[in-house]
Design a protein around this nucleic acid. Structure first.
Lengths: 249, 249
DNA sequence: ATTTGAAAGTGTTAAAATGACACATAGATC
DNA sequence: GATCTATGTGTCATTTTAACACTTTCAAAT
């Protein structure tokens, strides 16, 4: 696998351009984000997975490659958030010592292109590699700071996600194949960061025709078992393409 | 003026990062975009105003500087569209000859950060300077190709504009201080690229409370003169900040 | 066997928003 | 004063929204 990636790259890193990835995961209760760790002083420093691009590499490819190298995640559809280019974005003292350990030109001006995506957390047990000492899921609300300008990038990603949920269906990538409407409901609440009326939520979701009720039910739960649902892939993709005017919350 | 800009820059261009600007204007009939021209073969080559950034410059500052250098436009609020980074984005033969005439390292990989904005056309008679042989307004619908990947960038800008109009008020920057509702109506139709019902449009705009009717009327027109309006700056800014859920077309 | 706890599931109503639609008006020009 | 042209205005049927409470089903505990 590593080989196929290298086929498309030279050995030359472009010292001025990096990519960073915000990967969201949902644990049926709250949003999490994938970060990499680095031992630092008497604590740990956290950052989004990211690194320089190769000089002949597409930005999207670079994002996928870097994400895989640092966390093991592959085949993820990454969507661009935008460029972050403050000339001082990597100049904090603590950040500089990190850079000195991993970059040939730690002082170069680097602008970064940020990407985001969502994955089913259960499917991905992130494995550290490369310069990431470890990679792990952290609940978004517990994150108070990140290296470089990554906290700012995370905020931008959250805000994009919030925006996206109003015009495109979301959930297919974050939930398992079979899920309950309560789980989907909770997901929307986590993203929008506010409570949504249960009955109104269900009504709207059902009107979109993106979920199909299965004959199957939850079992083993100490309460009324929930109906299971799947996404209707055709309709889901259609709405993913065309969007809808407003989900309306 | 030029001096103030230089104060914030070194003489070092970063060979790998450029900015490009999509500036929209509205001539009361259709959308236009500001392009720069270059003599080429027996015709003319068109491009968006753009160039390399300085190595210690903010991206937003670079966009403003480059725009001013190439077209004379100043003090414009530019909003980022995103990064365009195809490794071959500047490799067309015709583009390469342009680059050879203006770049120290014409073969360097360049990713560009695209910005967009809108201005009142009447206020800005674009003046060419620097390597732009001329700068001019061209109706968007007449543009079939542009240098580099600028056509693609233009499409992205249009699509962002279309998206933006549904969640934020637009018009303050594109229309003169006093304007008629028909002009605003036409602007919305131009951006959304479809007809909108006149009465429903007026109803919705008025509900937003962003326009105030003046005591003044149009004069000299060979038909019933229109009421003139201004934007209510406070309410406009409030909606600009907070957005609204959906303008609903 | 019965009770308890916990989340699932379900419908109505009043208010607001939407989309479709047609004709009288005011000024300029001839 | 006749004509041309864009302005300006209201209604109604349909759809969408937001607010709101109780019954059901299963597992676990007693």
């Amino acid at each position: 696998m590593r080989k196929e990636i290298q086929k498309n790259t030279t050995l030359e890193l472009n010292p001025n351009v990096s990519v960073d990835c915000v990967i969201f995961g949902f644990d049926f209760d709250k949003l999490n984000v994938l970060v990499i760790n680095r031992d630092f002083a008497n604590g740990v420093q956290r950052a989004l997975p990211g690194n320089l691009i190769y000089d002949d590499e597409h930005l999207d490819q670079a994002a996928n490659r870097v994400l895989e190298e640092l966390t093991g995640l592959q085949h993820i559809y990454l969507e661009q958030i935008g460029a972050f280019g403050d000339p001082l974005r990597i100049s904090k003292e603590s950040d500089r010592s990190w850079l000195q350990s991993i970059r040939a030109q730690p002082d170069a001006r680097v602008i970064t292109i940020a990407y985001f995506s969502f994955v089913k957390m259960e499917d991905y047990q992130p494995q550290a590699s490369s310069f990431a000492k470890s990679a792990e899921w952290i609940p978004i609300n517990e994150i108070k700071e990140l290296a470089f300008d990554h906290y700012e990038i995370l905020q931008a990603a959250k805000s994009r996600l919030k925006q996206m949920i109003k015009i495109r269906p979301i959930g297919f990538n974050l939930l398992p194949e079979k899920f309950t409407l309560s789980q989907l409901h909770k997901l929307y609440e986590s993203i929008l960061d506010k409570p949504l009326d249960k009955r109104n939520f269900r009504r709207k979701i059902q009107k979109l025709n993106i979920v199909m009720s299965l004959k199957e039910k939850q079992s083993g739960v100490p309460h009324k078992p929930s109906q299971l649902f799947m996404f209707d892939k055709d309709q889901y993709l259609r709405l993913m393409q065309n969007g809808f005017d407003n989900f309306g919350f």
